[in-house]
Design a protein around this nucleic acid. Structure first.
Lengths: 193, 193
DNA sequence: GTCTATATTGGGATAGAC
DNA sequence: GTCTATCCCAATATAGAC
């Protein structure tokens, strides 16, 4: 039952690979990140890399998952606090520092719309989770009398999600766009009773 | 100097190819539409097809352009009338009938964020055009006293564009989503003074 | 667990005949 | 203007040694 050294080492290595992958992709983007290049960046052969993740797609899904975790830790997107939009804006602002990750997310999400795509489930779950979390936080603020009861929390949560996706896609085209400013104004409009 | 028959025929053929391509892509989507398949669908060899468009990317850009034209004709997105959101909602509703085209748009737009991508210019121009057109229409409605003067037409136009993009991306994942309903509510929130 | 080397696939592009 | 045939390339995936 004891977790043996080799097993623990495998976990650690996976971890290390993901961390590096995140950095590399953040910089050079998804399109230019082939398995070969990623392997080189983490100091492994392509086969060595694939040994840990099986396929390219699975690797990138893990990268996205890891990124979600990191962001949750760093920007407190548990959203159980009473200032929903604050954490969201923080992440959106942060994202301009990691354009490659936005690109990976956007590109992958476009590809994953086919039901057979390995990342389809990831994006579905992520959307569900985001919307539920945000909606719950809004409801909590409503219960606390900080937001009008008349608001439709589900609708607002959805609009935040799709707006963020759209803003990011637009930002990638034209990075003079102030995503946070627009999102903040959107929030104001949505929560006006 | 006279435009000869062969030239006119070339134009006509191009036109015919685009029309067919639109239908094919609408049905089977972008991912599954390789040059080979498209060529087969239009009854031409791959080389014959490329003779008219040069590269795959150029062909798809033309497909998207053609689609914009068709939609403008069909749904009156000139938007010079005094009901901006109406035409937009019509197009959004129509789009659920052509999922493959939404997919092409979404996927290509993700790819085109790189400045070197041949479609980069197309998406930039399209965004600019859409936003300017919508903003102008909003301003016209403001001038006519149909909308509050306090509204920021540019901001609203941008939010409509990114929301539509985001909704479409989300719809491709889960086509039970009622894009038009959400967009309509968004509009209501945005134009509330 | 990691490597080298190779297979395989899925396109897009090009040459050259008709 | 259109075809057949071929080339070429980029990637991922796999076999098998160490």
């Amino acid at each position: 039952m004891a977790v043996r050294g080799s097993y623990a080492k495998g976990i650690a290595k996976r971890d290390e690979i993901l961390t590096t992958a995140l950095e590399v992709i953040a910089k050079i983007g998804y399109r230019r990140t082939s398995l070969r290049e990623l392997a080189a960046a983490v100091g492994l052969s392509q086969t060595g890399l694939l040994h840990y993740f099986g396929t390219k797609e699975d690797l990138f899904i893990e990268v996205l998952r890891r990124r979600d975790e990191v962001d949750m830790d760093a920007y407190g997107i548990q959203l159980n606090d009473n200032d929903v939009i604050r954490g969201i804006l923080d992440v959106v602002r942060h994202n301009t520092d990691v354009p490659g990750l936005m690109h990976l997310y956007t590109q992958f999400s476009a590809e994953a719309s086919e039901e057979t795509h390995p990342a389809h489930g990831y994006f579905q779950e992520r959307a569900t989770f985001f919307q539920r979390t945000v909606a719950d936080a809004i409801k909590a603020q409503q219960a606390a009398g900080q937001l009008p009861d008349s608001l439709d929390a589900g609708h607002i949560a959805l609009m935040l999600q799709v707006s963020i996706d759209g803003l990011q896609s637009q930002w990638l085209m034209d990075n003079s766009l102030d995503m946070a400013a627009h999102l903040s104004r959107l929030w104001d409009a949505l929560v006006r009773a």
